[in-house]
Design a protein around this nucleic acid. Structure first.
Lengths: 214, 214
DNA sequence: GGTTGTGAACAAATTCACAGCG
DNA sequence: CGCTGTGAATTTGTTCACAACC
């Protein structure tokens, strides 16, 4: 239907959730209208970028006035696919997987954790934050059955690619990888990664190269 | 000393740790030499990018042969500042902060967690994975005393900016923010963020816009 | 007057393609 | 002959600057 938003740049897509959060704050504060400048400040970017980014969604602002907070929030939620829930499965019920399951933020933001999987039979049958742990052998069958769209990988690196393959076989369209290894997914499946140690190593570089003091 | 690597692009810096991990795997497998093509495959990028990235570090390859794995690993570790440890403090001893402290990967990769901080007096004095929890009021004093270079923020969003300010006041040069909010640090301080819900929201966008099937 | 929306200018990052060297 | 290292071309992303509009 909406032919407006034809191909939004990746960099813009990655910023939309930040704007969304800012808009949610404004709603909480009962603020009805916001300028690109104010929104930029809240999102930690500059105003030109906000306007360019928002323009990909459509012309939702009013010149001389700004953007209607609630209207923009709604349009952005719709564009991000956040007007409905996306059931999520977490694979790996170890430290990290359990922490993710216990972290309420997922369910609260529309990503209910509906299943967990682990390769360790001793963990199968347990519940983490109310979510039942299944065996990884059952990913393909169960994830498909439960209509899981997004899979979260929180396994050791050695298991990650195999798990990703199973998730894809189950019809999962998006994968969020926490395992410290590169995994690949077929064309058409989205993949993002969060690598904790890697982030520290990047910071280490800048730490090492601070102010040449010359 | 080395005047070679004058200003490495950010995008390249963010990939260096991925190459580093690949090189470590090759060392484990007792492989002495690697081509840009092979390294690219392991790192999930293309060969041209590998060569361009590595060229910023210096001319460490041999034409017709490839790169000496151990030598490149050493040079890269040095460039990334990973030849010595970087003591880290984690602020926020809740679910996430505790999971991060318990996650052995940090210490193991040269980022020993030497202190934790929390605003809740009930948590102060406890130990998480052997690390003592202090009160956030003592960040400035203690972080400076302990020579902490990198601070990890794992607090609720509402506390994050205040904590960041304290860390900076303590002389911390790098901040890794897990709180779901935008924080700012002064010029010269490095900042990276990991936002779990945000990653899922980005995936939701692509999930929502899968295959227009036209 | 004030603020958006957007072409045009600029900057960063990626990819190509090949000379140069082992 | 094979593979690196790198200029040049291309693509992607950012910022400027201003016309259009409320």
């Amino acid at each position: 239907m909406s032919d407006r938003a034809r191909h939004i740049p990746e960099a813009t897509v990655a910023r939309l959730p930040v704007y969304l959060r800012s808009l949610a704050e404004l709603v909480d504060d009962k603020i009805a209208t916001v300028s690109s400048e104010r929104l930029a400040e809240m999102a930690g970017v500059n105003a030109a970028k906000v306007r360019k980014d928002l323009s990909y969604l459509g012309s939702y602002g009013t010149r001389g006035v700004g953007y209607d907070v609630e209207y923009l929030l709604f349009q952005m939620s719709r564009e991000l696919g956040l007007t409905h829930d996306w059931p999520v499965a977490i694979v790996g019920a170890g430290n990290l997987g359990s922490a993710l399951a216990n972290y309420g933020g997922f369910t609260q933001r529309g990503f209910p954790v509906v299943a967990m999987f682990d390769a360790d039979r001793a963990k199968v049958g347990r519940r983490v934050h109310g979510v039942l742990v299944h065996h990884t052998d059952d990913i393909v069958e169960l994830a498909a059955e439960l209509g899981i769209g997004i899979g979260v990988i929180a396994t050791p690196a050695s298991a990650a690619q195999d798990v990703a393959d199973k998730l894809v076989a189950a019809g999962v369209g998006s994968v969020l990888n926490f395992a410290p290894t590169v995994i690949t997914v077929p064309e058409g499946v989205s993949l993002r990664k969060v690598d904790l140690a890697l982030e520290l190593q990047i910071l280490s570089f800048y730490q090492e190269h601070r102010e040449p003091a010359g």
